[in-house]
Design a protein around this nucleic acid. Structure first.
Lengths: 196, 196
DNA sequence: TAGAGTACATACCGGTTTGTATAGTTCCCA
DNA sequence: TGGGAACTATACAAACCGGTATGTACTCTA
């Protein structure tokens, strides 16, 4: 009784609702700490529907990581829109992560967190995480190239390490300050190409 | 039958055996992924004994983190013995972490991994992790002070972020190379105090 | 010699885990 | 008018989770 309706509130079909719920819970509570029962319940969907869409929990985890990767690139491109010079883009990159760290419920990088929870080497999520991180590193490398660095890959690596370290530390300290520090160090590692 | 003996092989009493087993499994498989049944079984101890010693799983987790902290400081001091100058000590610091990353079964920093698995803010492990990290940062700061930096805290922060980023990245890529890169960047961020 | 301490074995508690089996309901489209 | 897709509801399996209750065996010390 009292349930002739479908789609209890949201306009999204079941699959989208499941993915959105799972993404949120996986990030907030961790992957292992989140059961499929909880996801299904919170998404107002039966477990049967969940399994029909994603096959297994690991499948859902992989889909979550794919969606997160896509979302982050979209946000990053929006954040960097309009910045033309390499230095401005580099600064904006750190600012984007800082803005993220300032949001409520910040728990560090979801990909790094997922990686520590995934111990099996053949889990489908592993490749998605590696690809995401390599994408970020390459993005930074494009700035270094644009800035005319003699060894762009080296500088990009260093920036990347600062970024990763800042995210981990920001999560632990529950503060966005490490990202400010990292940005500052990154600029110091950027050799001024030509004094104008 | 067939079990008149006690202490099936190790000379250590039950408590030590439990802690050693738990430390290993918590690091290798993750905290949530390791059940107390498995720990007790692997330590050749009954669950009752485990609970008599540590009270709860969280208590065992806290004890594991405390032991890990102590172990790491011991190793670090051994590694840095004999290095006198600040720069040498700084280099040795990164080398120590690199040596660790080269060991088999390397899964990144156990404290960082534990922190992502502990979501409750009042878990006894949280403070141990924070204190450990702050201790490392302060250690780095002593090098910066020794080297005569104008703002030792700032430089130490930057070194710390490089170190953390390198550990996370080394774990993900299963390579010790990020630590080499981090060391190199750290030296570049160390302003040469006075050309002799 | 008594008692405290330590560890043993076994069995159990309520609850949760991922995943499946079965059957019924609603909706859209041909 | 009928068929298929999408979804629901319920129930179950088999294992595992952290934690406890009860009672026994051994050793060391006062």
């Amino acid at each position: 009784m009292a349930s002739t309706q479908r789609r209890s509130g949201g306009t999204s079909p079941a699959g989208d609702r499941i993915l959105a719920t799972a993404s949120q819970l996986f990030y907030e509570r961790g992957i292992r700490a989140t059961g499929v029962n909880t996801i299904a319940e919170q998404a107002a969907v039966t477990k049967v529907t969940l399994y029909a869409h994603f096959g297994s929990k690991d499948g859902l985890v992989a889909a979550h990581l794919r969606a997160r990767d896509q979302r982050w690139w979209t946000e990053l491109h929006e954040f960097l829109a309009g910045r033309t010079s390499a230095e401005e883009r580099l600064k904006a990159m750190f600012d984007a992560y800082q803005a993220w760290a300032l949001e409520g419920g910040f728990r560090g990088c979801g990909f790094v967190n997922a990686a520590t929870e995934i111990t099996t080497p053949d889990h489908p999520g592993r490749a998605i995480i590696s690809d995401h991180k390599e994408g970020i590193r390459r993005y930074l490398e494009s700035f270094a190239t644009e800035a005319g660095c003699t060894d762009p890959a080296e500088v990009a690596d260093e920036w990347f390490l600062l970024l990763e370290g800042a995210m981990v530390t920001a999560a632990l300290r529950q503060s966005a300050e490490p990202l400010h520090r990292a940005r500052q160090a990154a600029l110091r590692l950027l050799p001024s190409p030509s004094p104008e």
